[in-house]
Nucleic acid binder design. Structure first.
Lengths: 159, 159
DNA sequence: CTTGAACCTCTAGTCGCTACAGGTATTACG
DNA sequence: CGTAATACCTGTAGCGACTAGAGGTTCAAG
């Protein structure tokens, strides 16, 4: 017996973790990871203990990957998935989550833009002499040479 | 004996890790971490085994923090520090490092901008009904609804 | 001399995967 | 049918750059 269930419609065709991963743009390890942390339900297994997936798993995983690509955290994706599971609910919460995320993205953009401008200034002002005269090292050594108002915001907050 | 060395000039005054951290804008834990990974040299200790720092440590740590604020990786900072230690060397390498980093920042900016635009579009098109009709969920479910050319680039690459 | 803040080391946790190691299952070919 | 390549399994450890906590010591002020 190759598959767990007999007589499947084409729409219910089972695929392995590799094909699922290919179709949704991630790696098998990541799929198993998502299962472990509960983003994907535990997949049914065939007789040889290998995970079998249907088209609905492809859809769910595609949703996850896409939301992750947009920069939503795994926890946010978890909430989005819960919401997506109840199509009759008002979409207010989805909207709120998306707006909150947009605000974060805009904040990061602002910081990153400031950093880019400052980096450009640093580089443009480097006359190409030796390190002792190098404007880049100067700026890094002394925040006052920086055109920013305050601190840039901490490394983790930049990216 | 309170301090390790007698008769210090005011410029050589010793401070503790807390004051160093305050003056350079990070936490004592981070200072110890930087020492552990070799960004800061092992600090001399007083008789009670506590780290004592001079103004040069403040300068070095400020340099580190500032470079990190600009988004340079710890490894890049390590290289910058080495270069800064040799002021007579040509600043070509510093320039290259900075330019390379600028290119990365610009790439991130481009991706983040694309994400912001798409998020804005998603949110604007949400009519406020229920989740079944929600454009945000639609876009996340189906990449074809996205105005992007290709994939956004993977979550880690966004920030 | 006592109290409380600051300091010490060591370990483990964060986030979102990714990469092994060491084994089993499936599949394609001859 | 046998074999070899590939895909899959579990479990654990690693990445980067810290951060947090436990459990203890030292310092500085009153």
């Amino acid at each position: 017996m190759k598959e767990h269930s007999p007589a499947l419609s084409p729409a219910e065709r089972y695929i392995g973790i590799g094909e699922l991963a290919r179709e949704s743009g991630c790696k098998p390890e990541t799929v198993r990871y998502y299962e472990r942390i509960g983003l994907l339900p535990s997949a049914p297994r065939n007789e040889g203990n290998q995970r079998r997936y249907t088209a609905s798993a492809v859809r769910r995983l595609t949703f996850i990957r896409h939301a992750r690509d947009f920069g939503f955290s795994v926890e946010a994706v978890r909430e989005l998935l819960q919401m997506a599971d109840y199509p009759a609910m008002p979409c207010e919460e989805v909207d709120t989550l998306a707006k909150h995320h947009l605000a974060e993205v805009e904040a990061r953009l602002a910081r990153l833009t400031a950093v880019r401008d400052e980096l450009q200034r640093m580089i443009n002002q480097c006359a190409g002499g030796n390190i002792g005269q190098c404007h880049i090292i100067d700026v890094l050594s002394d925040h006052r040479l920086c055109h920013q108002a305050g601190p840039h915001g901490g490394a983790d907050v930049i990216g």
